[in-house]
Design a protein around this nucleic acid. Structure first.
Lengths: 221, 221
DNA sequence: GTTTGACCAAATTTCGAATCTGGTCATATG
DNA sequence: CATATGACCAGATTCGAAATTTGGTCAAAC
């Protein structure tokens, strides 16, 4: 087989298999052989792509994460007003809810992710958190975010709220999150003009983030 | 020994022992004999107070829960303005944080509470939830709570937010919760006069709730 | 009447044997 | 030569039966 394009295609197939099994049986119970069989490759082939089991499954989550970020970038590109914090939160929340594995990640679902959970936060967070803070500071600089508290504090509260929403069962409607975020974090009036002014830079920020994640995903396999 | 007053005293001692061990070793690893020994009573004596292990440990949590509610009632009695939703949330949050077992309960800490967790929500919630909804409706009727959404929805969001705060590590400052609740749930202006008007009824509500809990606690032992 | 700890069935833990799985690599394939 | 594979192995996991512990009872002690 040509080493170029088919390789990535096969990697996708393996990730698909891993995702499917991860969701159905959980990390602990999913073996590399299961994955290899379902992806129609030999077990050794899996190790041609990822250096061990953990990396494989982290790649599954990273791929979902990239996809969600891509969706976000596309949404902002299509409608600049989506950079509004409450709107963006709503979009991300809804998109995460649609992806059971990510939802498990954000909600600390140990049953399906098992020992993957700690490693996960060490893998995805650092860069995302940075980009997120930059985004919030961008908003704050344009009267699109309350400025009476340091962004650092707002981040803590936002994460708590998001976690609470994701961990609840059933998770509340995305609209309720949007409403909560709007009231808790935004100034009384949110200027449409300012939103448009800020959108390009935000788009840039998230595009960079998604590029970095994509790179890390490629490097992984 | 006289069967009247000493009985309650001994029950307290047993609960103290159980609380201490529960906190240190967790539910799974704490045996009735451990508790009996630490409380300086025979094992059989424990069963003179609670019909089984589960009831004993539930009583530990119920007692803490009663204490926190008592604190709340005292606080409101001392300062009627404490009935303000954001202020009351802050007080309860801070008080729960001070009690590791309750914190474990609200934050679904399975490590220390183990199989007690499911039973717990079935034991405390029903009445408390009711009183809480009544309290919110009382506020809503006096322009002390936003009325553009049904209380039912507000409850869901509040629980998600509270859970998020309690589950975070480290838990954010109580002042941050107060601020979040104020913005997310209260109208722009909160009338001091209305707060005073509402305080007596709220006090009544919480006093009833604490009385019911206390009764259930007594019935338990 | 009250308290207790010996007692027992059932649950939990222990621990060695049996099985399974992550990861490697010599071989096969093309 | 480059790539894919599954037999292979050490270490992890699971299994199972025996040993231990524990929740709950109750006859005896007080």
């Amino acid at each position: 087989m040509p080493p170029a394009e088919d390789r990535a295609e096969r990697a996708e197939r393996i990730l698909d298999a891993a995702a499917e099994l991860l969701l159905r049986a959980g990390y602990r119970r999913t073996t590399i052989e299961d994955v290899a069989e379902r992806a129609d490759v030999g077990k050794g082939t899996v190790y041609l792509h990822w250096k061990n089991r953990e990396e494989l499954f982290l790649a599954v989550l990273l791929r979902d994460s990239v996809r969600v970020l891509e969706e976000l970038v596309a949404t902002i590109a299509a409608d600049p007003l989506s950079v509004r914090f409450s709107r963006l939160s709503e979009i991300q929340y809804a998109n995460v809810l649609k992806r059971p594995l990510l939802r498990a990640g954000y909600a600390d679902d140990a049953e399906t992710l098992g020992k993957l959970l700690p490693k996960l936060h060490g893998k995805l967070d650092p860069r995302h958190a940075e980009a997120f803070v930059e985004y919030l500071e961008l908003l704050a600089g344009h009267d699109l975010l309350r400025t009476d508290r340091p962004v650092r504090e707002l981040v803590v509260v936002f994460q708590a709220v998001l976690h609470g929403f994701l961990a609840a069962s059933p998770p509340p409607e995305p609209a309720l999150l949007a409403d909560t975020i709007a009231r808790a974090f935004e100034p009384l009036a949110v200027s449409t003009r300012q939103l448009r002014a800020v959108a390009p830079r935000a788009l840039e920020l998230f595009t960079e983030a998604v590029a970095l994640d994509r790179k890390q995903l490629e490097r992984a396999y």
